[in-house]
Amino acid sequence: MKELAKYLIRVDAQFIDGQIVPEIAPSEVMRLVNEPNIVVVRTGIPGQLLHNVIEATRAWAATVPPSEEADTFDNNQHKKRLHIAKIQQAPQLFHDHTFDAIMDLDEAHRQTLLAVFDPVRQFWNSLTSNNAEFGIRKGEPYFHPQVTHYPLGGSFFGRHWHPLNPQKVGTILALNQYGEDYHSGGTGYVINDHIVETEGFQDQGDMILFRYDLPHWVSPSSFADRFSWDDPRGRWVSILPFYDPWGAPADNKEPQGWKEQIKVANPDKVVA
């Protein structure tokens, strides 16, 4: 375990028999997340498996027209997002691929994605004391596996936030390498009025963990590059949201109340 910057901690892990095994207990990882800190877990997932997810996602998207309809949360779709979110007023410019019905994909694509998403699912379960499986469960929370591409030339995701529960801890797994496959853009956070930028601190295979109600954003990729939806270069990440799409959405007021709720390392002290 190593402190990389203020509120930014790296935890090493091994990838053993398809599972992410951190150097400290999952309960300790969650304690660090909830203090709060941004925790970068070096998962050890082989780079080839991560690269395969990108290639399989691109191959699948080439056979499926991008959706222009409202999300139904019960299918597999990809969408070129270029709008401002209605509730949080967060501007967006990125290409997401959402596999709510991941088990309905053809065998090859399903197995390629699950080679990465299933270890992340098991790790998230160990962190949150859940035993959730993939599959659509209307009326209750379920997983929404996503592969997101931030193209070169100005893609980004504006400052936004989520309800803490039922997700508890957000997961952002780097599928490619900063400094090689892309040179700008990373996820930023606010902790106790301090800005925490992760750009340059997340390598391929590293998974960012964060308390899910922290305000966060994705910084723009450099405008020195020309933007193109069809250019595969840029930042690729996988995330594993867990929520009920028909439940209560995030409030339109930024959740600054978390400052009074989060305990720091000293259990008797509460951040004011």
Rank of each mutant, 00 (worst) to 15 (best):
K2W: 08
L4A: 13
I9D: 00
R10Q: 08
F15Y: 14
G18D: 04
P22S: 12
P22A: 12
M30F: 11
R31S: 15
V33P: 02
E35M: 15
E35A: 14
I38E: 00
Q48S: 13
E55M: 15
A56N: 03
A59H: 06
A62K: 14
N76R: 01
Q77R: 15
Q77A: 12
K80H: 12
I87L: 09
Q88K: 11
Q89P: 08
A90F: 03
L93F: 14
H95A: 13
T98N: 04
F99D: 00
D100A: 14
A101G: 06
M103E: 07
E107F: 11
R110C: 14
L113G: 01
Q122C: 10
N131L: 13
E133I: 02
Y150C: 09
L152K: 15
G153A: 13
R159F: 01
H162S: 05
N165W: 06
V169G: 00
I172A: 13
D193A: 13
I208E: 05
S222Q: 06
S228C: 13
S228D: 07
S228G: 10
D230W: 11
G234W: 03
V237H: 03
Y243L: 13
P245I: 15
P245W: 11
P245Y: 11
W246F: 14
A248E: 12
A250D: 10
I262F: 09
K269E: 00
